[in-house]
Amino acid sequence: MPDLLSAILEYAFIRNALIAGLLAAVACGVVGSFVVARRITYVAGGIAHSVLGGMGIAGYLIAVHNWDAVTPLYGAIAAALLAAVVIGWVTLRARQREDTIIGAVWAVGMATGILFISQTPGYNQELMSYLFGNILMVSDSDLSILLGLDLLIVALTLLLYNRFLAVCFDAEFARVRGIRVEVYYILLLCLAALTVVVLVTVVGVVLVIALLTLPAAVAGLFSRTFRQMMIGAVAFCIFFIIAGLAVSYETNFPAGATIVLIAGVSYVLAIVVRWLIRRHRNPIAH
């Protein structure tokens, strides 16, 4: 840990990594709580993997057609939003096909990405950093995009909190109260999509789901209200990312995988701790 601290002061790229991690934690705690509570982890998974398509296309346009104004992050945003709207719309129109459409978006997105990356010169390295993240490569301009996405996510959630909560908890009742459930559901998926984009820079396409759900799941074990769950999820996410960065700095392990493993181990520990607390409080019932 002290090594990481001195490295933060010394190297800009480690500072950027830490800032990206903190920004990711905010989005991940806020939106991840909705994803976990509404049980749409696999929707988020489909969105996450479709992001590879967008990044692949953007990378191809940059390398082959010299589109200088574009970065892979723009491609990721476009693909994530498209996937969110497609999945949301099809789910609302034909409920029973939800898993099929998620699977299709998931695989088609990845296939598109792999195809374009294969046609892009020097593709091997790109592919690995898209798939597994490369938090040590976050540029200043990436950071400002991440900050913008974060502000958007937090502002919309605060503004529409009660409606999101009602749509997640009891969509039918929300509809009877005159809430346009479809609009809010797709908007929530779009927020999940933007969060996925933020997280992809930290842990990559494949590992996003872990960071989106595990901090919220851990917080959910100890929360009494949805607000507590959100705040707890942000805190746990910050802890996982900083701890992961510190360990990976010491050991030279890949940062994304280290962060996810720490989150996973913490989740298991949290379940055990909660079980022990309950048993302690109520020894007869358990």
């Binding site: 529409l160 909190y161 409606r163 909560l165 908890f169 929300a174 109260r177 005159g178 809430i179």
Partner: peptide, 12 residues
């Protein structure tokens, strides 16, 4: 949640 749908019920 019974108060949803009234003016300003989005945030607080």
């Amino acid at each position: 949640m019974g108060r949803l749908g009234r003016a300003g019920s989005g945030g607080r």
